[in-house]
Simulated scan of single mutants.
Amino acid sequence: MTVQPEATTTFVEYCGERLPVLSGKPFYIGREATLTVDDNPYLHRRFLVLHDENGMWWLTNLGTHLSATVTAADLGFTATLGPGARMPLVFGRTSIVFTAGPTTYEVQVQAGSPNVSAPTVERFVGGDTTRGVPNFTESQRLAMLVLAEAILKRDGTGASAIPSSAQAAARLGWSLTKFNRKLDNVCDKLDMIGVSGMRAGGGKLASNRRLRLVEYALSTRVISRADLPLLDAEYARNQSSDQQ
């Protein structure tokens, strides 16, 4: 990745409110903090802190049992920040999602300089093709896309936003049997190249494979926000054919 200096104001957004983050002044997030997100007793008083150090903005988890998911969807980046861990915020716009008790929260952070952009990929001509990334059919990509729709529309949305197979099938205008068949095909391809989480022990289908599939599709950029209009087009096409 390339680091590019950028003089961008740093701020935190939560529920439509924008709060500035000042250099040299730690910004705490919790139930009794600079940003008090809720009086939820399951949430630490000071759970996260945003602070600058050596010219970079850092996010540190001050908690003892809660984790936060940090996402920069446009760059295909997602990481879990566990208790006591810290990480630099170098992506410009970042979403932070965490759950305390029954409630899930999402905070947006716009971090100033430095800023990381997506790397420039050089295309090589000739030589052997690297094996590993399978070719997906249009319908297989649609199956992945519908599972990741909510996450692509809103950075940081957690695993609870991934639809069930029945919901995904309805969104596409497919039968449940068709969707499950496409999902099986995709998971089989990924299992063959060694992607974990596609199958459980004994060759059985993994219970959380939809989540692992979405993680894979986003991190490898098999799908992106630009593909989202394909969902409406597929649904409209199937509705039209049903009416004929």
Rank of each mutant, 00 (worst) to 15 (best):
T60D: 01
T60S: 05
T60F: 00
N61T: 00
N61P: 00
L62W: 01
G63C: 03
G63R: 00
G63S: 06
T64F: 01
H65K: 08
H65Q: 12
H65W: 04
L66N: 00
L66S: 01
L66P: 01
A68T: 04
A68F: 03
A68R: 02
A68N: 04
A68M: 07
T69S: 14
T69C: 11
T69P: 02
T71W: 02
T71V: 15
A72E: 14
A73M: 15
D74Y: 10
L75C: 11
L75D: 13
L75G: 14
G76V: 10
G76R: 10
F77C: 10
T78E: 15
T78Q: 14
A79I: 12
A79S: 15
T80D: 09
L81G: 03
G82W: 06
G82I: 04
P83H: 05
G84Y: 00
R86T: 06
M87T: 12
M87P: 03
P88L: 09
P88K: 07
P88I: 08
L89K: 05
L89A: 08
F91W: 14
F91K: 07
G92E: 05
R93C: 09
R93W: 05
R93S: 13
R93V: 08
T94W: 02
T94H: 04
T94A: 07
T94L: 06
T94N: 05
S95D: 09
F98A: 03
T99P: 01
T99D: 02
T99F: 02
T99R: 07
T103I: 10
T104Y: 03
T104V: 07
T104G: 03
T104K: 05
Y105T: 04
E106H: 10
E106I: 08
V107C: 02
V107N: 01
V107S: 01
Q108H: 13
Q108M: 13
V109F: 00
V109D: 01
V109T: 03
Q110Y: 05
Q110C: 09
Q110E: 13
A111Q: 04
G112H: 01
G112A: 06
S113E: 09
S113T: 12
S113W: 01
P114C: 06
P114A: 08
P114Q: 09
P114S: 08
A118T: 07
P119K: 11
P119L: 14
P119A: 15
T120S: 13
T120Q: 14
T120N: 10
T120D: 14
T120P: 01
V121I: 14
V121C: 09
V121Q: 11
E122R: 14
R123Q: 11
R123T: 13
V125E: 15
V125Y: 14
G126W: 09
G126D: 07
G127H: 07
D128W: 10
D128T: 13
T129I: 12
R131Q: 14
R131A: 15
G132C: 11
V133N: 06
P134C: 05
N135F: 05
N135L: 08
F136Q: 05
T137G: 13
